[in-house]
Design a protein around this nucleic acid. Structure first.
Lengths: 230, 230
DNA sequence: TCATTTATGCGTATGTTTAACACAAAGATA
DNA sequence: TATCTTTGTGTTAAACATACGCATAAATGA
């Protein structure tokens, strides 16, 4: 006789935000219930019977953090039998990006147990969440080079230096500013606006815009986006 | 009051095999039970309470097809609420490769409802399995270019022409034989054996071997495998 | 106000990699 | 022994990546 399957299904989200030079952040929550009560963990939770996995991610993020996501993709499904000390829980993990606009939202609800952590100053995480986070970080680094997802970490209009710094921060590499700009512009998916940003010292910078429509038209015809610097 | 979660967890496997020039095949089974009884589908089934997802894949493949897998990786998790007409079933899909050695195994059990299908002559598939298969095929094509997984579709020792044909078949592109060979050898992960294969007409070919250890040593130091031809 | 600092924007030389292509070598066939 | 077929190697031009130099446009402060 067959034993009835008893596995719960949850989602977990690794959400990255980029504020300024040299600081990539991750969104974490402090757990209110056992197991791992009062420890930091990835936002997430059980999937409802009639909702899709993506809906579950959006719902949990809204409930737990109030953050609006700008890019979301499935990462990996963690299914080892003992990853949750109580019952068996399958974790379908997602990986998301938020623009700086949407970054600050949590500031209002400071009392709540949700917080952005710099990637270099992470607390100890519950469950196997460190492993999930590591995988997400690896994916972000890899994907930045061959898909234009970096724009989902910047505001709609940005100076070129923001884009440069973003790439250098995430890839943890020095990049030649001039060659980077040349290559980026050569794809023809970034537009100049007529706006100029003048803050701080130095020459004021033109603001640029990612033309997503143009990009989507291009990829139909074997167009290949790739940024790689040694 | 909370409604108890009622979601089943299954795995599905898309297994590719490569016999000869111009024929990439997929392993399918004919379902013996409802729903979709007597229709073709991907091998797979429910995960047991105490087994890992990978174990479940291996078990199901063994039970249903008798095929030994040479490469396995998680593909994607399909979780839309209505993908199974009866209950909600989450499908964690896997993508696998078998070497020609292990390809024929099924021939003994011809009576069983399991069969290799050329990718160009697929039957209609049950559930959303066509979608899963498409994604696996896409992944195989993409991955062939930046990870040396092609060797898991060839015997341990192979003539260079086999490798060329494999790439041309899967990528569906003409590749310059001479440039391909030069580039492949330049990575230093393929070894010449002292064996020579003489079959058919034409000059007999040296047999080569993929040196997996060498490859694994290299990737530690930022080594990058990449085969790309237009 | 005028030199200094800071950051942007453009251009050019050099080396490396890719893409296109031709022919010799080793057997099988007949 | 001439012909066919497949393997094995080399050469070259064009494309691309890399490494720079320097002018420009503001803010800063002596």
């Amino acid at each position: 006789m067959k034993i009835k399957q008893d596995i719960k299904v949850a989602i977990d989200a690794v959400v990255f935000g980029y504020e300024s030079k040299n600081s990539l952040s991750v969104l974490l929550i402090k757990r209110g219930i056992e197991p791992f009560k009062d420890e930091w963990a990835l936002p997430g939770g059980l999937v409802l019977n009639d909702e899709s996995l993506e809906d579950a991610v959006e719902r949990e993020l809204k409930e737990e953090t109030g953050v609006t996501i700008d890019y979301l993709e499935q990462l990996y499904t963690f299914g080892s039998p003992n990853r949750d000390p109580r019952n068996r829980v399958l974790a379908v993990s997602y990986f998301g990006l938020v623009k700086p606009n949407h970054f600050k939202i949590k500031a209002d609800t400071d009392a709540v147990d949700v917080q952005w952590f710099h990637l270099s100053e992470l607390p100890k995480l519950a469950f196997d969440h460190q492993q999930i986070l590591d995988m997400a970080h690896k994916r972000l680094k890899a994907k930045l080079s061959y898909e234009p997802i970096g724009f989902d970490l910047l505001n709609d209009e940005f100076p070129f230096s923001d884009l440069e710094n973003l790439y250098m921060t995430i890839l943890e590499k020095e990049i030649d500013r001039r060659n980077f700009r040349k290559k980026m512009l050569s794809f023809g998916i970034i537009e100049e606006t007529n706006k100029i940003e003048k803050i701080g010292s130095g020459r004021p910078a033109k603001l640029f815009k990612f033309n997503k429509k143009k990009f989507q038209q291009l990829i139909v015809n074997d167009f290949h986006f790739e940024i790689k610097f040694v």
